[in-house]
Design a protein around this nucleic acid. Structure first.
Lengths: 197, 197
DNA sequence: CGAGACATGTAACCGGTTACATGATTAC
DNA sequence: GTAATCATGTAACCGGTTACATGTCTCG
């Protein structure tokens, strides 16, 4: 599922400019499962055009001079169907925040609380925006997929909220050099240069 | 959160070989949020070594001649802490299967059912493996994060199971050329070469 | 008239994936 | 002995991100 295929998919729902395709990636029903920037969309579109999978309505003819409206061709439709017939690679969830929180024992208490709460807030925000973008009455298959995104982020938010204190307490106990619990008393090993043994 | 930092994180939990680090990435508490192959791990380790962030116990001294055991240094520990102090980029969930299912109207009924069920099964499998790898009595902060992974996949599985028929029915209604409902009657537009207008 | 959204593109860069190549050790 | 697992690495490739560069249109 490269950017080209995703563009074809969006165009199968209706004609659009590159800019509009990007918005679909951001607000559409699968916004949570896929993302792409202009730097990949525009080249992808030109490639599709060169291969006859889309057509481009030359700008200037209708309305604005700087809009290039793309439309999928029959060949494009078939290419899309072909791509959709291939087995899908398995999901990749990449969450730097959660990996970082896995190593929360190396952070100060303040910092880990900050990251945790920032993350919780971010997830809540996403869940909210998702609910907002999903019309209640839509029963299409695409809406089912969008609903899954919503369910996921709700779960994220609920789990984090429920386990907040458990996480923070456990992390506090695991913290290596409490940094403050060890006053200047013993020795000044605060600037050892890390020379390996 | 590049591979180097992740390696440092794993090494902060104990010495390990590159091979073992990879296993941590696969089975450890954040396996669902991060992944890396040998092609990135080994170069990363060499880079860390060159920068004095880890040490390498020369093989041959203890036991097997082909094991290179890495250990984090003080400098490495500090570098890790520094990385952990930076703001985390937001999550990226990339699910080709779900994007593909978003366009299920371009698939045959059989194929979309197959993809859906395969995906459902995959998600269930992951949830199961996750539950299996997580000891019940672990109350550490890392276990909380691992528990989140578990909760997520459970949600995935439950949602998919609950909405299976709704999804398949909706997709059936939206299917464009039912391919079979349109016999050879009208015309042979099955091999138009998609010439753009 | 100015701010903000709309709109398109290029080029360098970078990090990770893939494929390839090799060999030791362990358990059956 | 032989298969599976353990173990390490390299090099080409590739796709996407980032930063840059530019210009239009609309609304207040």
């Amino acid at each position: 599922m490269d950017v080209k295929t995703a563009c074809l998919g969006v165009l199968s729902l209706g004609d659009a400019t590159g800019y509009e395709i990007k918005k679909q990636f951001e607000d559409g029903p699968f916004s949570h499962f896929f993302q792409a920037g202009f730097g990949s969309i525009y080249p992808a579109l030109n490639d599709l055009l060169a291969n006859g999978l889309v057509t481009r309505a030359d700008p200037g003819l209708d309305g604005r001079a700087d809009r290039k409206v793309y439309a999928i061709t029959d060949a494009g439709q078939r290419a899309l169907t072909r791509s959709l017939a291939e087995p899908a690679p398995s999901d990749k969830i990449r969450s730097d925040a959660l990996v970082m929180l896995s190593f929360a024992e190396h952070m100060t208490e303040a910092h880990r609380t900050e990251i945790f709460d920032f993350y919780l807030n971010d997830v809540r925000e996403r869940a909210r925006r998702l609910a907002e973008n999903t019309p209640e009455d839509d029963t299409s298959h695409r809406a089912v997929i969008a609903g899954l995104g919503h369910a996921i982020y709700e779960t994220f938010a609920r789990y984090l909220a429920e386990n907040r204190t458990a996480f923070l307490n456990a992390a506090n106990e695991a913290t290596d050099p409490p940094e403050a619990d060890r006053p200047v008393l013993t020795h000044k090993n605060a600037d050892h240069t890390g020379t390996p043994s």
